[in-house]
Simulated scan of single mutants.
Amino acid sequence: MRLWVYLPLALSALLPYAARVTAGRVAPSVAVRTVAAAAAAAASGFVCCLALLALTLFDDLPPLWEFDDRPELGLPKPVPGMIALGAALLLLFGAVRLVRDVRSRRRVLRELRAAGTPNAGLVVADWAEPFAVAVPGRPGHVLVTSGMLRVLSPQEQRVLFAHENAHLRRRHHRWVTVSSWAAALNPLVSPMAVLVGRLVERWADEDAAVVVGDRRLVAQAVARASLAGRRRQVAPAMGMSGSGAVERVLAMQRPRQASRWQALVGVAALCLMVLVATAVAAVEFADVARAWISMVA
């Protein structure tokens, strides 16, 4: 366990850069799926390798500790105790972050659903704050405030509803949740979670442009909603005034992004390396564990 067990940790630090390059060269729908899947793969490899490192603490427990200072036995040496302890602490830290994320999302959903009972998939809240989000669920619904409706023209309101319904129809909250949980377990991929959050808004913008048939109208509506709407924590709900407003407005003033499939090679290769390295590390750990356990069998 000299190299392979650490390789997924190093590759996790490279993935956000590769993901950012890929996202600029493919359509948002492709980028969301690719980046979220890559984040999940990196988190899986990260957690598995940390678990393997932490499990090497077994040689410090009785009755195995009595073989620790007997080099004549030729037992393979696990990793240093401090590294194993650090891995165990990182696992605990990740578990705490994951639980906090899950609880935060549930709390936000309860608050948003308490705003009113949906009628035909829509809740109009009489709030002065300009605010609109797609609230996931079974079924999901759109929550919009009277303040937001006053800000937007009737044509821009069409964009708003097309955008929020795209979030619901495409189940964007699932991709956002996957990437957020991956970042909770593996902080190295946190930039990828942020990137997925921006990309799902771009994806919904593109779907809205198809519905209304006017990319410049979508850009105008995004700009107006983003300037009017006050940012608040709404994940896993998603709103048109979400992140990356300037980037989104500029994107809608250009032709639709075509996908360059070769741009996926870098991210795919890194993910494959993470999974292969994790598998090899698991095999190496099994060999080490078998040798030590055989001493007391």
Rank of each mutant, 00 (worst) to 15 (best):
G45Q: 06
G45F: 00
F46S: 03
F46M: 13
C48N: 05
C48K: 07
C49W: 06
C49H: 07
A51E: 11
A51S: 12
L52T: 03
L57M: 14
L61V: 15
W65N: 00
E66R: 09
F67C: 01
D68L: 07
P71E: 02
E72A: 12
L73I: 03
G74T: 13
P76G: 13
P76Y: 10
K77C: 06
P78L: 12
P80Q: 11
P80Y: 12
I83R: 12
L85P: 13
G86E: 15
G86M: 04
A88M: 15
L89P: 05
L89K: 01
L91A: 11
L91N: 07
L92Y: 13
F93I: 05
G94I: 10
A95G: 14
R97W: 02
V99L: 13
V99G: 04
V102K: 02
V102D: 10
R103I: 11
R105W: 00
R105V: 13
R107L: 06
V108G: 03
R110S: 14
E111G: 10
E111I: 04
E111V: 15
L112S: 06
R113S: 14
A114W: 02
A114T: 13
A115F: 03
A115Y: 01
T117R: 03
T117I: 08
T117N: 05
T117M: 07
P118F: 11
P118M: 03
A125H: 06
A125M: 06
P130V: 04
V133F: 15
V133C: 06
A134H: 10
V135D: 03
V135N: 03
P136Q: 11
R138C: 05
G140L: 08
H141R: 08
H141C: 12
V142W: 02
S146H: 10
G147M: 03
G147T: 02
V151L: 12
L152K: 15
S153V: 00
S153F: 00
Q155D: 15
Q155E: 14
E156C: 09
Q157T: 13
Q157R: 15
R158K: 07
R158Y: 09
R158V: 02
L160K: 11
F161W: 09
H163L: 01
H163P: 11
A166R: 15
L168R: 06
L168Y: 06
R170L: 12
H172W: 01
H173E: 08
R174E: 04
W175P: 07
V178M: 13
V178D: 08
S179L: 12
S180V: 03
A182L: 04
A184I: 15
A184H: 03
A184R: 02
N186P: 07
N186L: 01
L188C: 11
L188D: 09
L188R: 06
